[in-house]
Amino acid sequence: MKRTIHRLFWAWEPDKEEAWLNEMAAKGLVLSDVGWCRFTFEEGTPGAYAVRLELLDFMPSTKQSQDYIRFVEETGAEYVGKCLRWAYFRKQTADGGFDLYSDIDSRLNQVGRIQRLIACVLPLLIFNATNMLFSSAMQGSLSARIIGGLNLLLALLCGYGFTRLLLQKRRLKAERQLHE
């Protein structure tokens, strides 16, 4: 039996997304496919799988990412699927613990990668927002005001996410002062 759930997670909260996917796995719903805000689960033994996700350096279809995905699979994990540049993996808990990162540096690396992704989108949103709001002020167009407002809202959200990642990075760096 398959079950599909639609849910939105922001790019800056992969930990929350991962925690939710693992809660589902603990209940016996194991991630079997992913898409845009879409998660498909198959029913299985509760707690049989651990799920991990990460933002790759390159799109999952590229040679670099394929090499990496294959490497992770060789360690006993399964590649479940992708959503844009995010890759999802699962591994049977009977085969030992499952983590993608085991030191602070690689965690910092991942946070930086997400930050760079947001940094690419943010200027676009701000440009759209100012453009649309400016033209709505000139022409009194309601649709331009709505689109502009939505862009502004998204830009603010992304700014919030970026700041949260910044704080997370600072915490990790402080920790690294003491140990790896």
């Binding site: 990460e54 490497f71 994990a77 030992g96 983590d99 990162y101 085991s102 030191d103």
Partner: peptide
């Protein structure tokens, strides 16, 4: 010491 796949790859 348990190396995670992503850390090991890097």
């Amino acid at each position: 010491v348990r190396l995670a796949a992503g850390t090991l790859y890097g």
